[in-house]
Computed example of a mutant assay.
Amino acid sequence: MEITHVLLAEDDFDFGSILKQYLEIHSFEVTWALDGKEAYTLFKKASESATQRFDICVFDVMMPKMDGFTLAEKVLEINPEIPFVFLTAKKMKEDKIQGLKLGADDYIVKPFEADILVLRLQNILKRVQKTTHTVKKETSYHIGTYLFDPINHQLHYNGTIQRITDKEAQLIKYLFSNKNELIKREDLLLHIWGNDDFFSGRSMDVFLSKLRKYFNQDPAITIESTRNVGLTFKISGT
């Protein structure tokens, strides 16, 4: 069985120790850093290795030397596809929005049971693995005047290339496969995020906002929302 390698950044020694032990009991390999700067150094070093790369990251938001948000930004510069989860004692709306804008796969508020983290990580990894397996079978195809390349995670337009994340690629694929049809919010959430809770809903809204910007060069392409129902990925002329 393939081992999943987790980078855990948590400055609370007792809590970090518990999480590390609990994850290892559930067959995760865990590298634990006590601050954001150390975590970044470990991630950067691992990215240069062919065998020691991380599969998923778990970052506490409030840490010394480098906070979790800054750490995530730097990690994403190295690997835009890495899934990550934020841990925080804060419940502030602004923090959640900031995490969503960075593309966080989940946002867990302390205190929480360790088995909750295990389940969340397992669900995220299942979605990532399923999508990777599916995407590899696909070829590039046209969306209006754009060329969507799901294999290399690129969106081409008029000689320019927009690099997109794995989740953005999933979302574009699902929207395009249901183009010009009303898609229920819960169906989209369950297909891409695996659940339809509040966090996932806000995360989806952030991603849809990004896609609207990506496709704004072609007036024939729009993402129209129907309040309390869903949305439609409209492509005129198709």
Rank of each mutant, 00 (worst) to 15 (best):
L155A: 07
I124P: 02
F215M: 08
I223N: 06
L34P: 00
D106Q: 07
Y22F: 15
N123T: 07
S200H: 03
G99L: 07
D166L: 14
N123E: 05
T88I: 05
T4K: 10
E77L: 12
L231R: 06
I172V: 07
D14S: 09
I192V: 09
K126L: 13
F15Q: 11
T132I: 14
S140N: 11
K37L: 15
L175I: 05
E48T: 15
T139M: 08
A72T: 05
I192G: 00
K173G: 10
E2H: 13
V135G: 00
A220D: 14
S140I: 11
K101E: 14
K45E: 03
E81D: 11
D14K: 06
Q154W: 13
P80D: 00
D205R: 13
L190H: 07
Q98S: 07
S200T: 05
F86R: 02
T238Y: 10
R212I: 04
K45Q: 09
T88M: 01
E77S: 11
D205K: 15
G230H: 02
G99K: 01
D197N: 12
I3S: 10
E2I: 13
P111G: 02
D105P: 00
D67V: 05
G159T: 06
F112K: 03
L171S: 04
L231M: 15
T165K: 14
V85Q: 03
E29Q: 14
K137Q: 12
Q98P: 04
S17A: 06
I108Q: 03
Q162A: 11
F86V: 06
L71H: 04
E24R: 05
Q52G: 10
R53Q: 15
F59H: 04
I151V: 15
S236N: 15
V135C: 00
Q122L: 14
H5M: 00
L34N: 00
G16L: 08
A50C: 14
I3C: 06
I124L: 05
F15E: 09
F28W: 04
P111E: 00
